[in-house]
Design a protein around this nucleic acid. Structure first.
Lengths: 164, 164
DNA sequence: CTATATTGTTATGTCAGTGAACATATTTAA
DNA sequence: TTAAATATGTTCACTGACATAACAATATAG
């Protein structure tokens, strides 16, 4: 992940990454890295990583989901899900219930412990994001506004095409 | 990188990742992955990766920059810069000019070839991003609007604190 | 019933980056 | 001025978060 440093101790009119800041992808990446780095710390006290947090969220929201289905929702391969489910199972947050009608598959279920874990982690991340918004650089905000304008224009065009 | 699938072939009222969609980080990630995946393909014909593209942009914009400075702008370690500079040098896009006043350091310079490469790549990425905006899911746009509102509120609060 | 497909699993590879150690060169302090 | 501390670029081993490929067990289709 390559992105420019946030610390604008050099507030010259020509930042070294000015040619990159024109790109939405670059600015999105900056925003994401900032959120991600800190989120990892927010989740650590719960024994969760971003991946396991995401997987837990999906299982909480879709009880009985299979690992293959989970891999589709998370957009990763089945082999990657094994690690996440193992980790959540070791935490005692979910369990693999054998499916009677298909002995190859498991139905993933949240335990009582997992439910409480989810509630606490969810609240922590909400607070985390609220706090982090105060730290968004003004430059990022400007770019996000530009992004919004373009995205909205795109959505409007879509609606017009659809004859709305 | 864990994120939910874009293909909303299941347009139920309760998507399996609904608990994740409340988070800005999750939506930012979705947007970034979408942009990033395709950007890699856009850059491939030029022999560039996202990392080398970014490094080239910085050198173009700050001729004579050192590798340590470049690492600070790109927010990666010096050891990571070596790979990028090697790759750009092998492409003939930049060169390492010895600095007379400091024999440890190199001044990174764009070659004529590198300048043309940058111009073509920059244009390609601009076109790429314009085209990609049509593909941004409406849900992402909605979330980005929300993000903007919160970010703007945050910026306003900052200005008020500053007494503007 | 046989051929094909699917589920979860393991082992291995990849890719972008970090961390630690190093040679060389420069700056700071005694 | 010499000695200690610091900075630059480099190498190599390592990590985290995936993907790919092969596999056994099971299920489904022809």
């Amino acid at each position: 992940m390559t992105l420019a440093n946030d610390t604008d101790e050099d507030n010259s009119a020509q930042p070294s990454d000015r040619l990159l800041r024109q790109f939405v992808g670059y600015n999105i990446k900056r925003a994401y890295i900032q959120l991600q780095g800190d989120l990892t710390q927010t989740l650590a006290p719960f024994g969760l990583r971003i991946g396991t947090f995401s997987a837990l969220a999906v299982v909480v929201g879709s009880e009985g989901i299979s690992q293959t289905q989970l891999s589709e929702v998370l957009n990763i391969k089945r082999s990657g899900v094994v690690v996440l489910v193992d980790e959540l199972e070791n935490l005692g947050a979910i369990d693999r219930k054998p499916v009677e009608t298909d002995r190859r598959a498991y139905a993933l279920r949240v335990t009582a412990k997992g439910w409480h874990l989810w509630q606490n982690a969810e609240r922590a991340v909400q607070l985390h994001e609220d706090a982090l918004f105060d730290k968004l650089a003004v430059e990022d905000i400007r770019t996000l506004r530009e992004l919004l304008v373009r995205a909205t224009r795109s959505a409007t065009r879509k609606r017009q095409e659809a004859g709305e």
